[in-house]
Design a binder for these strands. Sequence first.
RNA 1: GCCGGCGUAGCCUAGCCUGGUAAGGCGGUGGCCUCGAGAGCCACUGGGCUUUGCCCACGCAGGUUCGAAUCCUGCCGCCGGCGCCA
Length: 457
Amino acid sequence: MPWSILELMRNEPEVLKEHIKKRQLEPSIVDSAVALDSRWRAILTKINELRHHHNVVSSEITRARGEERRKLIEEARSLKNSLEEAERELRAIEEERMKAIRGLPNVVEDGVPVGGEEASVPIRFWGKPKVYKDYVVSFEEQTEKYGFIPNYEIIDFKPVGHADMLENVLKLADTLKAGEVSSSRFYYLFDDIVWLDFSLLLFAIDRLTSKGYSLVLPPYMLRYGVINSVIDLETFKDAIYKIEGEDLYMIATAEHPIAALYYNEEIYDDELPKKYVGFSPAFRKEAGAGNRDLKGIFRVHQFHKVEQFVFSLPEESKKYHEEIIGNAEEIFRELGLPYRIVNIASGDLGACATKKYDLEVWMPSQGKFREMVSASNCTDWQAYRLNIRLIRRKGMVRDYVHTLNSTGIASTRVITAIIENYQLPDGSVVVPKVLRRYLEPFERAPKEVIKPRMVRP
RNA sequence: GCCGGCGUAGCCUAGCCUGGUAAGGCGGUGGCCUCGAGAGCCACUGGGCUUUGCCCACGCAGGUUCGAAUCCUGCCGCCGGCGCCA
């Protein structure tokens, strides 16, 4: 079976346009892709005919002698000229066609709310958020408006924001010095916060490997052709760092190298699903972020991440999409961080995703739910570009696998959530119980509480 | 980084010197046979197109030639040796 988007583009372009409109993109990109594709196919047919003729003449040369041979060679030469001209014509259009086709986003799954960012809808809530008394109205707007009445606790003290906590209360981060020696959105973290970072990663790795996901430490850099197959142009522009003078790009998440694990390979249906949990640092330019979240460590150029990744049968990808968001929810429930799950609106989906769930944790000092996890079903969009085929043994039918990815833990973001949710009025931060067993082996690691310091270490 | 060897279909392998249009095996799929299984036999088993057919594909990209897996150039990767290195 060919790639689903190409099939749709050729057979039902109007349907594909509806999907593009839902994403608030220009539907005419389909028309230009279709036009380039038909033109390309017409030239290709012409070339095939010329090549055939040329092949026939060439094979006659083998047997011919004398004058006849001389004439045949002359004919082959002239065919070669017409062929080269047609090939130039094809090359002229080929790259443009490929760009147009690769520029097409995935379709939008049924049930995804249609509209821009504001159209995204929370679909479930968990936990008992701590709501500072002045934020109660705003909290209700973020819950009751969608028909949910979660249980919450009103608190009298306003927790200090994570950036001030880290820099001025706990004194366990230095973003000013990092800004000076690297640039903004970098950080130094110290002692208890570093232990916290590692324990979060180990906790997520422990949970996910227990569920049968294979642990993988992937390459942190990829070639252009590979990384460009995993992500869309927007992500590339806004997120990806390049190594000067080499064909290497730094990954923005382990999703990229794990997706590439089967680059140009075939997977038999009885080997699926393949489930992985990857660990890697994540490097992001955050070029499109402007001044947003400039303070602290919520939005940074570099952090640690545990990632879930699944290669699945096409008919099972929806099931695994629910599974990976479910795994992430389990992790956040065990951490005791109140969250909501949001079904992301069509206009806010990445080009790869047909549907996306975000997990957003309640941040008491900001009075908002903030994104901690993003779980996407990419169906065959990445697999087509990476050329990862699925072979169904019954009848040896060739198809494309489906790929899915979800955050497990993104260290710095979860640290901000812990600092805001586990903060006591005296400025100390309680260590979530579930992390303690990962801190226990280390003499100097915090076990129960992280206390404010007088001076930065 | 330097020197040498290698790269052929899902896998293994022949062809390369001496240019004439990819041979064989394994695995897989379907069928015949069988009460059933096995064995045996037959067909199929990379991509594309306007699909009884045709075109393309021998790591990738160029070049020479009527014709390139084969000859030439550059690049990538793997293996071995030397050098460097946490």
